[in-house]
Amino acid sequence: MSEWRLSEGATPAEVQAFASLEAVFATQGREITRDPLSEVILCELDGQRYYIKRYLGAGKGLRRFIGRPRVKAEWQNLKHFIKWGVPTAPVVGFGLERKGWAFSRGALITRELPATEDMAQLAQRNAPCLRDGAWVATVSAQLADATRTLHEHNFAHNDLKWRNLLVNDAKELFLIDCPAGSFWWGPFLRYRIIKDLACLDKVAKYHLTRTQRLRFYLQYCGHDKLDARDKKYLWRIINFFEGRE
Protein backbone atom coordinates (compact mmCIF):
# COMPACT_ATOMS: atom_id res chain seq x y z
CA MET A 1 0.00 0.00 0.00
CA SER A 2 1.45 3.35 -1.07
CA GLU A 3 0.28 6.79 0.06
CA TRP A 4 1.77 9.91 -1.57
CA ARG A 5 0.43 13.46 -1.48
CA LEU A 6 1.52 16.83 -2.78
CA SER A 7 0.59 20.04 -1.00
CA GLU A 8 -2.20 22.16 -2.43
CA GLY A 9 0.29 24.89 -3.35
CA ALA A 10 2.54 22.60 -5.38
CA THR A 11 3.70 24.16 -8.65
CA PRO A 12 3.27 22.40 -12.03
CA ALA A 13 7.00 21.64 -12.07
CA GLU A 14 6.76 20.07 -8.60
CA VAL A 15 3.71 18.03 -9.60
CA GLN A 16 5.62 16.65 -12.57
CA ALA A 17 8.92 15.99 -10.81
CA PHE A 18 7.50 14.58 -7.57
CA ALA A 19 4.44 12.79 -8.94
CA SER A 20 4.90 9.60 -6.93
CA LEU A 21 6.92 8.01 -4.16
CA GLU A 22 8.78 6.04 -6.83
CA ALA A 23 9.76 9.30 -8.56
CA VAL A 24 10.92 10.81 -5.28
CA PHE A 25 13.17 7.83 -4.50
CA ALA A 26 14.57 8.00 -8.03
CA THR A 27 15.44 11.70 -7.70
CA GLN A 28 19.16 12.46 -7.66
CA GLY A 29 20.80 15.15 -5.56
CA ARG A 30 23.64 16.08 -3.23
CA GLU A 31 23.72 13.97 -0.10
CA ILE A 32 23.45 16.09 3.06
CA THR A 33 23.11 13.47 5.78
CA ARG A 34 22.68 9.72 6.06
CA ASP A 35 22.00 7.31 8.91
CA PRO A 36 20.75 3.69 9.09
CA LEU A 37 17.11 4.80 8.82
CA SER A 38 17.13 7.85 6.57
CA GLU A 39 18.97 10.08 4.13
CA VAL A 40 18.61 13.73 3.15
CA ILE A 41 19.48 15.02 -0.30
CA LEU A 42 19.40 18.52 -1.77
CA CYS A 43 18.14 18.91 -5.33
CA GLU A 44 17.20 21.83 -7.59
CA LEU A 45 14.23 22.35 -9.90
CA ASP A 46 13.69 25.50 -11.99
CA GLY A 47 15.96 27.53 -9.70
CA GLN A 48 14.24 26.36 -6.51
CA ARG A 49 16.08 24.02 -4.16
CA TYR A 50 14.46 21.22 -2.19
CA TYR A 51 15.38 19.00 0.73
CA ILE A 52 14.18 15.42 0.27
CA LYS A 53 14.24 13.28 3.39
CA ARG A 54 13.87 9.61 2.51
CA TYR A 55 13.22 7.04 5.20
CA LEU A 56 14.24 3.46 4.55
CA GLY A 57 13.02 2.13 7.90
CA ALA A 58 10.65 2.95 10.75
CA GLY A 59 12.95 1.61 13.43
CA LYS A 60 13.90 -1.71 14.92
CA GLY A 61 11.65 -4.57 15.93
CA LEU A 62 7.98 -3.80 16.52
CA ARG A 63 8.38 -0.18 15.39
CA ARG A 64 8.03 -1.48 11.82
CA PHE A 65 4.49 -2.61 12.65
CA ILE A 66 3.27 -0.59 15.66
CA GLY A 67 3.13 3.15 16.18
CA ARG A 68 3.62 6.12 13.92
CA PRO A 69 6.61 5.92 11.53
CA ARG A 70 9.09 8.76 11.96
CA VAL A 71 8.45 10.13 8.48
CA LYS A 72 4.71 10.38 9.21
CA ALA A 73 5.41 12.03 12.56
CA GLU A 74 7.67 14.54 10.85
CA TRP A 75 5.22 15.63 8.17
CA GLN A 76 2.30 15.74 10.61
CA ASN A 77 4.32 17.85 13.05
CA LEU A 78 5.34 20.34 10.36
CA LYS A 79 1.69 20.62 9.34
CA HIS A 80 0.84 21.35 12.98
CA PHE A 81 3.46 24.13 12.97
CA ILE A 82 1.91 25.66 9.87
CA LYS A 83 -1.59 25.46 11.37
CA TRP A 84 -0.42 27.11 14.60
CA GLY A 85 1.45 29.88 12.81
CA VAL A 86 4.92 28.66 13.78
CA PRO A 87 7.30 29.47 10.90
CA THR A 88 8.78 26.36 9.30
CA ALA A 89 9.94 25.07 5.93
CA PRO A 90 7.15 24.83 3.31
CA VAL A 91 6.04 21.23 2.82
CA VAL A 92 5.82 20.14 -0.83
CA GLY A 93 5.08 16.41 -0.64
CA PHE A 94 4.89 13.52 1.79
CA GLY A 95 3.95 9.88 1.97
CA LEU A 96 4.90 6.34 2.80
CA GLU A 97 4.63 2.78 1.59
CA ARG A 98 3.84 -0.39 3.51
CA LYS A 99 4.28 -4.03 2.61
CA GLY A 100 1.50 -5.81 4.41
CA TRP A 101 1.45 -4.27 7.90
CA ALA A 102 5.14 -3.39 7.87
CA PHE A 103 6.59 0.03 7.03
CA SER A 104 8.69 -0.14 3.86
CA ARG A 105 9.77 3.40 2.99
CA GLY A 106 8.63 7.01 3.09
CA ALA A 107 9.64 10.54 2.14
CA LEU A 108 9.13 14.20 2.99
CA ILE A 109 9.97 17.10 0.64
CA THR A 110 10.36 20.69 1.81
CA ARG A 111 11.36 23.81 -0.09
CA GLU A 112 14.65 25.34 0.92
CA LEU A 113 14.39 28.47 3.04
CA PRO A 114 16.76 30.85 1.18
CA ALA A 115 19.61 32.69 2.88
CA THR A 116 19.23 30.81 6.17
CA GLU A 117 21.74 29.31 8.56
CA ASP A 118 21.09 27.16 11.58
CA MET A 119 21.95 28.63 14.95
CA ALA A 120 24.30 25.78 15.84
CA GLN A 121 26.49 26.82 12.90
CA LEU A 122 26.35 30.43 14.08
CA ALA A 123 27.50 29.32 17.51
CA GLN A 124 30.21 27.05 16.13
CA ARG A 125 31.83 29.87 14.18
CA ASN A 126 31.13 32.41 16.93
CA ALA A 127 29.19 34.62 14.50
CA PRO A 128 29.19 38.37 15.23
CA CYS A 129 25.36 38.44 15.25
CA LEU A 130 25.38 36.55 18.56
CA ARG A 131 27.14 39.55 20.09
CA ASP A 132 24.67 42.00 18.55
CA GLY A 133 22.12 42.81 21.25
CA ALA A 134 19.44 43.94 18.80
CA TRP A 135 19.82 40.78 16.70
CA VAL A 136 19.61 38.53 19.75
CA ALA A 137 16.55 40.39 21.09
CA THR A 138 14.70 40.06 17.76
CA VAL A 139 15.42 36.36 17.30
CA SER A 140 14.91 35.54 20.98
CA ALA A 141 11.44 37.09 20.99
CA GLN A 142 10.41 35.01 17.98
CA LEU A 143 11.79 31.86 19.55
CA ALA A 144 9.96 32.55 22.82
CA ASP A 145 6.67 33.02 20.94
CA ALA A 146 7.15 29.87 18.85
CA THR A 147 8.14 27.72 21.84
CA ARG A 148 5.22 28.99 23.92
CA THR A 149 2.83 28.25 21.05
CA LEU A 150 3.98 24.63 20.87
CA HIS A 151 3.67 24.15 24.61
CA GLU A 152 0.27 25.86 24.79
CA HIS A 153 -0.95 23.15 22.41
CA ASN A 154 0.39 20.46 24.78
CA PHE A 155 3.10 19.71 22.23
CA ALA A 156 6.80 19.24 22.92
CA HIS A 157 9.42 19.38 20.16
CA ASN A 158 11.68 16.91 21.99
CA ASP A 159 14.73 17.97 19.94
CA LEU A 160 14.62 21.74 20.29
CA LYS A 161 18.31 22.28 19.69
CA TRP A 162 20.04 25.19 17.99
CA ARG A 163 20.71 23.05 14.91
CA ASN A 164 16.95 22.87 14.34
CA LEU A 165 16.54 26.66 14.37
CA LEU A 166 17.11 28.53 11.11
CA VAL A 167 17.55 32.30 10.83
CA ASN A 168 17.64 34.28 7.58
CA ASP A 169 19.18 37.62 6.68
CA ALA A 170 15.97 39.41 7.69
CA LYS A 171 16.32 37.98 11.24
CA GLU A 172 13.32 35.68 10.73
CA LEU A 173 13.33 32.44 12.69
CA PHE A 174 12.11 29.01 11.50
CA LEU A 175 11.71 25.72 13.37
CA ILE A 176 12.57 22.57 11.41
CA ASP A 177 13.18 18.81 11.80
CA CYS A 178 10.67 17.54 14.33
CA PRO A 179 10.16 13.76 13.92
CA ALA A 180 10.26 13.18 17.69
CA GLY A 181 7.71 15.85 18.64
CA SER A 182 4.44 14.73 20.21
CA PHE A 183 1.51 15.69 22.41
CA TRP A 184 1.77 15.17 26.18
CA TRP A 185 -0.31 15.84 29.27
CA GLY A 186 0.16 16.34 32.98
CA PRO A 187 3.58 15.61 34.50
CA PHE A 188 4.79 14.10 31.21
CA LEU A 189 4.13 17.40 29.45
CA ARG A 190 5.86 19.39 32.20
CA TYR A 191 8.94 17.18 31.92
CA ARG A 192 9.06 17.56 28.12
CA ILE A 193 8.63 21.33 28.37
CA ILE A 194 11.58 21.53 30.73
CA LYS A 195 13.59 19.36 28.34
CA ASP A 196 12.77 21.65 25.39
CA LEU A 197 13.84 24.74 27.31
CA ALA A 198 16.95 23.00 28.65
CA CYS A 199 17.97 22.00 25.11
CA LEU A 200 17.79 25.65 24.05
CA ASP A 201 19.78 26.81 27.07
CA LYS A 202 22.42 24.11 26.64
CA VAL A 203 24.11 26.21 23.94
CA ALA A 204 22.73 29.61 24.96
CA LYS A 205 24.64 29.59 28.24
CA TYR A 206 27.94 29.66 26.31
CA HIS A 207 27.01 32.41 23.84
CA LEU A 208 24.41 34.68 25.47
CA THR A 209 24.49 36.74 28.63
CA ARG A 210 22.49 35.79 31.71
CA THR A 211 20.30 38.84 31.09
CA GLN A 212 19.52 37.71 27.54
CA ARG A 213 18.70 34.18 28.73
CA LEU A 214 16.46 35.54 31.47
CA ARG A 215 14.70 37.87 29.03
CA PHE A 216 13.95 34.89 26.78
CA TYR A 217 12.40 32.99 29.67
CA LEU A 218 10.27 35.96 30.75
CA GLN A 219 9.06 36.44 27.16
CA TYR A 220 8.31 32.74 26.93
CA CYS A 221 6.18 32.67 30.08
CA GLY A 222 4.72 36.17 29.58
CA HIS A 223 5.92 37.56 32.91
CA ASP A 224 7.51 40.90 33.73
CA LYS A 225 9.56 39.43 36.55
CA LEU A 226 10.28 36.08 38.15
CA ASP A 227 7.98 34.65 40.80
CA ALA A 228 8.67 31.71 43.13
CA ARG A 229 7.35 29.17 40.62
CA ASP A 230 9.54 30.64 37.85
CA LYS A 231 12.64 30.34 40.02
CA LYS A 232 11.90 26.67 40.70
CA TYR A 233 11.31 26.08 36.99
CA LEU A 234 14.54 27.82 36.03
CA TRP A 235 16.51 25.72 38.50
CA ARG A 236 15.14 22.56 36.85
CA ILE A 237 15.93 23.89 33.36
CA ILE A 238 19.49 24.92 34.19
CA ASN A 239 20.24 21.62 35.94
CA PHE A 240 18.43 19.32 33.51
CA PHE A 241 21.63 18.07 31.84
CA GLU A 242 23.74 18.14 34.99
CA GLY A 243 26.11 15.18 34.91
CA ARG A 244 25.15 14.30 31.32
CA GLU A 245 27.38 16.76 29.43
Score class of each variant (00 low, 15 high):
122 L>Q: 05
108 L>Q: 01
46 D>K: 06
118 D>G: 05
123 A>H: 00
10 A>G: 04
109 I>Q: 06
119 M>P: 11
113 L>R: 02
21 L>C: 04
122 L>T: 02
71 V>M: 11
77 N>W: 04
64 R>H: 14
56 L>W: 14
30 R>Y: 12
84 W>E: 15
7 S>H: 10
17 A>E: 09
102 A>C: 14
90 P>E: 12
87 P>L: 05
64 R>L: 10
124 Q>D: 04
66 I>H: 00
62 L>E: 09
34 R>T: 07
110 T>Y: 03
51 Y>Q: 03
18 F>E: 01
90 P>Q: 10
49 R>S: 13
38 S>L: 08
43 C>E: 02
65 F>W: 13
39 E>D: 14
81 F>G: 06
91 V>P: 00
127 A>S: 15
41 I>H: 08
55 Y>Q: 13
105 R>W: 11
119 M>R: 09
116 T>A: 11
16 Q>A: 15
125 R>P: 00
111 R>N: 11
47 G>D: 07
123 A>I: 01
36 P>N: 13
18 F>A: 00
22 E>A: 15
8 E>R: 12
80 H>W: 01
120 A>E: 14
52 I>P: 05
46 D>N: 12
102 A>V: 13
31 E>F: 03
27 T>Y: 00
44 E>H: 06
60 K>Q: 15
98 R>Y: 15
56 L>T: 15
84 W>N: 12
73 A>R: 12
35 D>A: 09
118 D>A: 05
65 F>K: 07
33 T>W: 03
117 E>N: 07
46 D>Q: 11
100 G>K: 10
83 K>A: 15
42 L>P: 02
125 R>Y: 01
41 I>L: 09
124 Q>I: 00
38 S>I: 04
80 H>G: 00
114 P>C: 06
